[in-house]
Design a protein around this nucleic acid. Structure first.
Lengths: 107, 107
DNA sequence: ATCGTTCATCGTCGAACGTCGATGAATGGA
DNA sequence: TCCATTCATCGACGTTCGACGATGAACGAT
């Protein structure tokens, strides 16, 4: 009964990733085209606990702003979040990040 | 009397590149966060001739718009252009692209 | 010297972005 | 049952982006 979207996504072999089309790659690049979102990605990479409140506590931004950045990263496929009671737990989407890397590498 | 900024930049060994800070990485990612600019990068990677007019001819955009995209890519350090008479010849900045790759890889 | 070509820059305009506070839904605890 | 906590969403506001046409500078050719 494991869910399809799991936190702690396993890493992905770099060679098994197809480069995305231009629009997808542009959308992903745009998503990380903001220092706060890069900080969030780095935070999620270095922590195993990744609830929204934790991210808010680490950034000099309002809660609503952080939530917005999380939404952008999630819609770009770079992170994923699962509801955990009243909280939302976020983590890196390793597959999405691999797609981004493949797209950049193919430039 | 060779210029410091040369077209046909040699490729760079991936391990010799330091990952940029968050602001620089964000700026570079933002620069490729648009389909037209990805198309330009791809165009420059596949051609040895890379004058502005050639790029304009390949894209469904006005000359001024293309010039603007080229400026953004240049200021992000992803391409470089040298004046060649009345023309401007652009090419990939391999070092800049390597920095971007290193930054993405370090996420 | 004049003209045509090439390109960057400027001004403009609508759309999208980034930020915030306020609001409300959902959940768990008292 | 009621209340506090957590978080996404909404509305507002100023800023930036993306696109265009117009303009003018720089250069080569005639």
């Amino acid at each position: 009964m494991s869910d399809t979207t799991e936190c702690f996504t396993p890493p992905v072999a770099p060679d098994s990733i197809a480069a995305p089309d231009d629009d997808t790659l542009a959308a992903m690049a745009k998503a990380i085209g903001h220092p706060a979102r890069i900080a969030i990605l780095r935070l999620l990479a270095n922590r195993e606990t990744c609830v929204t409140g934790d991210v808010v506590a680490e950034l000099p931004l309002a809660q609503s702003t952080v939530s917005e950045h999380l939404r952008i990263l999630r819609e770009a496929g770079l992170i994923q979040g699962e509801i955990e009671g009243p909280r939302t737990r976020y983590c890196i989407n390793a597959a999405g990040l691999a797609v981004l890397r493949a797209g950049i590498a193919a430039l």
